[in-house]
Amino acid sequence: MPAIRTTPADTAPGPQAFLAAQTRWRLVEILFWLALLSPFFLLPTYLTLASQIAITALFALSVDLILGYAGIITLGHALFFGIGAYTAGLVAKWGWGEAISGLVLAALAAGFVGYVTGFIITRVHHLALIMITLGLGLVAVEAANSASWLTGGADGLQGVRMWKLLGTFEFDLWGYSAYGYSLGALFVFFLISRRIVHSPFGLSLRGIRENLDRMPAIGAPSRARLHKIYVISAAMAGVAGALLAQTTETVSLETLGFQRSADVVIMLILGGTGRLYGGIVGAIIFMIARDQLADMNPQYWYFWIGLLLVAVVLFLSNGILGGLDRLLPRRRGDA
C-alpha cells in the first residue's frame, strides 16, 4: 500500500499530484484482475457465464462513466448496447465474420447514435433526462421490431456466423475463446476508462456532476464535456453489445430493451457508482447470484435477488464497494 493518503481533507498536494496518486496501480487491483483469470483453470464449465458477466461488466462500466462520474442517470443505455449488437451481428451475417473489426464498427455506430442523441441528452436534467433516455430506448425497440426485414424482428437476427478469432481460436462450446475475448475487451476498456477518469477531463466531469453551473465559470464548458463522455460511453456500450452478438451468434430485440437498461443500472448501483470497479463487481455478484439462485429455485429466485438488493441498501448504503469502504477504515476516502 502506498503511504500517501489523498483524502481531500489533507493539505492539498496539487491537482497533478492528486491525479498521479490515483493513477498508481494498487496491489488489490492487480490481484483482482488476476482473480478474473482463475475461471480458465478453476471453473472451466462456467466460462460461458463468465464471458456474459464480463460483457455485462463492460456495459456497466460504460454506464458508470456517465452515471457515476458525470451524473447522467439513464434508463435507456441498452439503446447503444443493442445498436452495437445489431451492427456486429449484421456485419457477420453479411459475410464479414472477423471479430475485432466488427467491434470497431459497432463502436462507431453506437458512438454516432450517441453523438446525435447527445444533443438532446445534454440539454435536460433530472426526471426529464431519465425519461428521455427511457423514451429513446423504447423507440429503438419499436423501430427494430418494425424493421424486421433487417433485424429479424422478434425472432431475432439469424445467420450470424463468426470466423475464428484472430484467425486461430474457434468460438467453442465451452466458452474458452468467448471468455478470453470478452475479458480482454473488458480489460482494454477498463484501462481506457481509468485513464479518462483520472485525467483533468475526468476531474472536470466530477465537477460538473457536483455543480453544473459553476464549472463553466471556471473554464470547463459543461455541455461539451458531457457530450464527449456520453459519446465515449455509448461507443463502449456498443462494444459490449457487439461482444454479446459475436460470442452468442444471435441478436434479439431484448438487447435494446428496457429490462437490460434497468438491470445494468441496478448492477451498477449494487456494486457502487463512481468507482470503476463498482459496475464490474456489481455485474459479478448480481449475475452469479442470479445464476446460482435460479439453479436452486428456477421459479422464485427473484425473491432472493430482491432481498439481496434491499439488504445492500439497508446495510451497505453506497453499494457493495461503498459499504466495504466504510468497513475498511484504512482506505482512501475519495469518491
Binding site: 464449465t45 460461458t48 456474459q52 422478434a154 452468442t248 431484448e254 438487447t255 429490462q259 428456477p298
Partner: peptide, 23 residues
C-alpha cells in the same frame, strides 16, 4: 435439470444449453 431462461433471451438460452452440455 431445470433452467430458467427468464423470457425472450436467446443469449441466455444459448448459454444455458452450452452449460447443460459441458457442465
Amino acid at each position: 435439470i431445470r433452467k430458467d431462461v427468464g423470457g425472450i433471451a436467446p443469449d441466455v438460452a444459448k448459454r444455458l444449453a452450452q452449460e447443460l452440455i459441458v457442465r
